[in-house]
Structures are given as structure tokens and as C-alpha cells.
């Protein structure tokens, strides 16, 4: 495993830790999109179908369990925890995320590398992950006061796929038998590009020592 992949995974992990910290310690999920969290849970389920059958490394298995467990605990907190669920701003979280699921499923059925159940589900998870942040980005734009933890959560989440892209380039150059999949590269690029606007305002507010706010 190269440094880009590892750094990407750590960013991904850090984003989840930051979000859980906000929810668990502050007992608040203000500014967090439940729809984006539902999409991520679906992404992990579909991608990690091989969790018990395809062993790659202890590291991979543990990380898969961590991502699945954290996704479901976040959903549980936002939907069922008696204090946290009251901080969920349902009226601001209006993105029609079922359309994203439908569109990604249709695309995965049409564009994939191999027509097997697992491969189509894997492809679906790649497409869905690329756009899963959209409900969250829309919600951020509507939030006047984005707290630090929410801002950092989105920043770490956006950085993770960007580092994965460097990892793919590195693997392409160094591994002879590397199975590079162009649909992953395109999806990863779209996924990272969706954050461009957010990155710009995040860095700007950090440099000016101001509170993060996205223009409406």
C-alpha cells in the first residue's frame, strides 16, 4: 500500500471520527444531511459485499467493518437518538436522493466492466459515492453558521478521494498487473471536483481566520 492510499484512508477515517465526535459529544447533528449519510451506508453495503468472502488483508477487513459500523451508528443517532434526532434540520435536507440512487443503478447496469451481480453492485457503489455528497453540499449552502466540526468533516471527506486519485496514478506507474478501471478514475475525478467550490471557501475562511460560510 502506498502513502497516497494510506493517507486517503486516514482522511476518510478522520472524517467519520470528526462526525461521530460532533454527534456523540455535542449531541448534535445540526447541518448534517441524513440523506447523504443514507447514501454512504448504501455505498458501503454494496461495495463491501465481499467482506466475509474475499479476504485481502486484516487492514482492509477492519476498515470495512469500521466504515459499515460507523455509517449505521450515524444513521441510528440521527434517526433514533432522542436528543440528537431533534437537532436534525429536516426542512433544509430536501435533496431528492432517490433519484441519485436510481440514476446510478441504471448507469451501473449500462456501464460496467463485467456483468455479474457483484461487479454491477460494486460499480453502482462507485457511481453513488461520487454524488453522495450532493445533499450535504446543498444543505451547507443553506446553513448560515457552519460549525468547525461540520466544515472539517466535509473537508476531510473531499480530500480522501483526491488522495485516492494520486494513489491510482502511482499504482498505474508502478504496478505491472494493476487493474485500472477507467470508470473509477472518472467517478473519482467527478467526486473530487464536486468539492472544488467548497474547498475554495474552506481555505479562504481558514486563511482569513473567519467563520466558514458558503455563498447562497
Amino acid at each position: 500500500m502506498n502513502i497516497f492510499r494510506f493517507a486517503g484512508d486516514m482522511m476518510h477515517l478522520l472524517s467519520v471520527v470528526v462526525l461521530l465526535l460532533k454527534i456523540h459529544k455535542m449531541k448534535s447533528c445540526a447541518g448534517i444531511s441524513l440523506k447523504t449519510q443514507e447514501l454512504y451506508a448504501l455505498v458501503f453495503i454494496c461495495r463491501y459485499l465481499d467482506i466475509f468472502t474475499g479476504f485481502i488483508s486484516l487492514y482492509n477487513t477492519i476498515m470495512k467493518i469500521v466504515f459499515l459500523a460507523s455509517a449505521f451508528s450515524i444513521l441510528w443517532y440521527m434517526r433514533s437518538h432522542k436528543v440528537v434526532r431533534q437537532t436534525y434540520d429536516k426542512d433544509q435536507d430536501t435533496f431528492r436522493h432517490y433519484f441519485l440512487i436510481l440514476a446510478c443503478m441504471v448507469l451501473a447496469l449500462l456501464v460496467h466492466h463485467k456483468f455479474t451481480f457483484r461487479e454491477v453492485m460494486w460499480t453502482f457503489s462507485i457511481y453513488l459515492e461520487a454524488v453522495a455528497i450532493l445533499p450535504q453540499l446543498v444543505m451547507l449552502q443553506r446553513t448560515r453558521n457552519i460549525d468547525n466540526l461540520t466544515g472539517n468533516y466535509v473537508f476531510f471527506l473531499g480530500t480522501y478521494r483526491g488522495l485516492y486519485m494520486l494513489n491510482w496514478v502511482y499504482r498505474y506507474l508502478t504496478e505491472v498487473h494493476y487493474h485500472h478501471r477507467w470508470l473509477t478514475w472518472i467517478s473519482g475525478f467527478i467526486q473530487t471536483a464536486l468539492y472544488a467550490d467548497f474547498f475554495y471557501y474552506y481555505v479562504k475562511s481558514w486563511r482569513n481566520n473567519e467563520k466558514l460560510q458558503l455563498p447562497a
Binding site: R47, D50, G54, N60, K114, R118, H179
Partner: peptide, 10 residues
Amino acid sequence: DDDEDSHDEL
């Protein structure tokens, strides 16, 4: 065919 087993990333 080891295509399906090459999903070694997260």
C-alpha cells in the same frame, strides 16, 4: 479471471 478479486481498495 481475477478481475473481481482486484477490488483491493476501500
